[in-house]
Amino acid sequence: MSTIDRKTVYRVADLARLYLTDDEIEQMTVSLNKILEFEEQLKGVNTDNVEPMAQAVPGVNVMREDVVENSLPLREVMLNAPDEVEGFFRVPRIIEKD
């Protein structure tokens, strides 16, 4: 385990799609390092031959009958849309024109 530098914090913020100001990057670096220092204690735990456990319940696929069921009406789904056009979510242009 290691400490985290500003460059890594910047890269992680990009991965997380989170804009951080320079001040926030600075504060985040300090507080993440404090937390990572706290996390150092896990290093000392012997986990040889231990299977990782992601879920407290045994993971099994849950199937249902392939039948048509009611879903939410379009009007309800679009109720909270920040920018709606005729039943579609409008977002900034993704593909640039030539």
Partner: peptide, 15 residues
């Protein structure tokens, strides 16, 4: 591996 996977293994030991 060092963080998330390690934590999942310790999680099993706790259980």
């Amino acid at each position: 591996d060092a963080y998330y996977l390690k934590a999942l293994k310790v999680r099993r030991l706790i259980k």
